Deep mutational scan, measured.
Amino acid sequence: QEEEKEIKRLAKKFNASEEEARRAWKKAGGDPETAEKILKKKG
């Protein structure tokens, strides 16, 4: 599933848990760029 792959990639890229990545993904409405910004800010 595309979403799961994206979440795993985000978690790995930002050294975050999949739970954090999933939360960022949901907050971003499934937009990878926005999710990255959220995780970057958090990191």
Score class of each variant (00 low, 15 high):
Q1E: 12
Q1N: 13
E2W: 15
E2S: 11
E2F: 12
E2Q: 11
E2A: 11
E2Y: 11
E3I: 14
E3S: 11
E3P: 05
E4H: 07
E4A: 09
E4M: 10
E4L: 08
K5W: 12
K5G: 09
K5F: 14
K5N: 12
E6N: 08
E6W: 14
E6V: 10
E6L: 12
E6Q: 11
I7A: 02
I7T: 02
R9E: 07
R9K: 10
R9H: 04
R9I: 08
R9W: 09
R9N: 08
L10F: 03
L10H: 01
L10P: 01
L10M: 06
L10G: 00
A11E: 04
A11R: 05
A11G: 03
A11H: 02
K12A: 14
K12F: 12
K12Q: 11
K12S: 11
K12H: 11
K13I: 07
K13A: 09
K13T: 07
K13S: 05
F14S: 03
F14Y: 15
F14H: 06
F14D: 01
N15D: 07
N15F: 05
N15I: 03
N15M: 08
N15E: 07
N15V: 03
N15Y: 05
A16L: 11
A16Y: 05
A16H: 04
A16F: 06
S17A: 03
S17I: 03
S17D: 06
S17K: 05
S17Y: 03
E18R: 05
E18M: 14
E19N: 06
E19F: 06
E19S: 10
E19Q: 08
E19M: 07
E19I: 06
E20G: 02
E20T: 05
E20M: 05
A21C: 07
R22G: 04
R22D: 03
R22S: 05
R22N: 03
R23P: 01
R23W: 13
R23F: 09
A24W: 02
A24N: 00
A24G: 01
A24R: 00
W25C: 03
W25A: 02
K26V: 12
K26Y: 11
K26R: 12
K27F: 08
K27N: 12
A28T: 02
A28P: 00
A28W: 00
G29Y: 09
G29F: 08
G29S: 07
G30W: 03
G30Q: 05
G30M: 05
G30L: 02
G30A: 06
D31E: 05
D31L: 04
P32F: 11
P32K: 11
P32E: 07
E33I: 13
E33H: 10
E33P: 06
E33K: 13
T34V: 14
T34L: 15
A35G: 00
A35R: 00
A35D: 00
E36F: 04
E36I: 07
E36S: 08
E36V: 04
E36K: 04
E36D: 04
E36R: 04
K37R: 10
K37L: 08
K37A: 06
K37H: 09
I38N: 03
I38L: 12
L39H: 00
L39D: 00
L39S: 00
L39P: 00
L39G: 00
L39F: 03
K40P: 01
K40E: 15
K40T: 13
K41N: 15
K41C: 11
K41F: 14
K41M: 10
K41R: 08
K42L: 15
K42R: 07
K42Y: 15
G43W: 14
G43F: 15
G43Q: 14
G43R: 10
G43I: 10
